[in-house]
Amino acid sequence: MNPVIKIILQRLALGLLTLFIVSIVIFAAVNMLPGDFAEAILGQGATPEAVAAIRRDLGLDQDPVTRYLQWLAGALQGDLGNSFAQANFASFVGDDSGVRTTVAQQIAPRFANTMFLAGVTAAIAVPFAVTLGVLAALYRNSVFDKVANISTLTSISSPEFFLAYVLILFLAVLNPLLPSLSNIYADMGFAERLQKTLLPALTLTLVVTAHMMRMTRAAIINLLASPYIEMARLKGIKPMRVIVHHALPNALAPIINVIALNLAYLITGVVVVEVVFVYPGIGQLFVDSVKIRDIPVVQACCLIFAAAYILLNLTADILSILSNPRLRHPK
C-alpha cells in the first residue's frame, strides 16, 4: 500500500479512538457538574416529587453507565438526543403531546454561524499571518520585523473584549463603516451576512495572527542556515524567491500545525467575541446550556468541539506529511 494512504488510515483510526475516549471524559465531566437540570429549572422551592418526576421523565434517574451507553449508541447513529430546555413538559402534568426539539435542530444553525465566522476569519487571518511571517523572515531584524512582532504580540496579549471594543470604537462609532451588532438570521443574504460578520472576524484575526506569523517567521529562519538555502543564494536567486521558493516549502509542517490549532480555537473558543457582538454562534449556546444544565446540548457541543480539534489536527498531520516529498515520492 502507498505509505501515505497507510499513514492517513492509521491517523484516522487514532482520531476515532481519541474521540471515543474524549466522549467518556465529556460524559463523566458533565455528570460531575453540581446540580442537574431538574433542580436548575424548578428553582429552590421545588418539591422533591416534582424534581423526581422530571428526572424520571428525562431518564436522569438511571445509572450513569446505562445513560452513557444510550447516549453513545444514539450519537453513533447521528442522534444526539433531545434538548431538555426545549422539551415539552406537558407530560409532567399528564398531557404529552410528544413534540420535542432535538439537540441537532438546536445546534445546527448555531454551528453553521460559527463555521461561517471561523471561515471568514481564517480567510483573512491565514494569508495575512503567513505573508507577514514571510516578510518578517525576509527583513529579519529590520524595523519592519520588529514592528510586526511587537504589534502582533500586543494584540495577542490584549483581552479579546478590549480588542473588540477598540475596533467598534474606530470602525463602528467614530467611522461608521461596519455594524457593531452581528445579529444574523437564517434567511440573510451572503453579502449582508458577511458585512455583519466582518467586525468579529477582524477582532479574531487580531487574536490569532501572532502565533501563525511568528511560527512562519521562526520556521523559515530556522532553515536559512541549511546548505540548500546557501546554495540558492550562491546561485544568485533573489532574496524573496529564496524565502518563498526554497525555504517556505520545507517549513510548511510546523506552520500548518499552528494554523490548525488556531482554526480549532476559532471554532471552540470564541465565546467572548460572540457575546460582545451578540453573534449567535455555538459558544453562546454552550454557555447558556451549561447554565441551565441542559446536559444533551452541553455534551453535543463538547463532542463537536472535540471532533473539530481532532479533525483539524488530523488534517494538519496529513498535510504536513504531504508537504514532505520523501513521503509523497518514496524511492
Binding site: 541549511s226 546548505p227 540548500y228 546557501e230 546554495m231 540558492a232 543564494r233 550562491l234 546561485k235 544568485g236 536567486i237 533573489k238 521558493h245 526554497h246 516549502p249 520545507n250 516529498p325 520523501r326
Partner: peptide, 25 residues
Amino acid sequence: QKRQLLGKRIAYVAQSAAASFNPAH
C-alpha cells in the same frame, strides 16, 4: 551586482549534494 554574477558567471559545487539540493523540488 554580486547576485547577478552568482550562478551565472561564478558557480558553486558544495560538499554534500544531498544537503545542498532543496528536498522540496
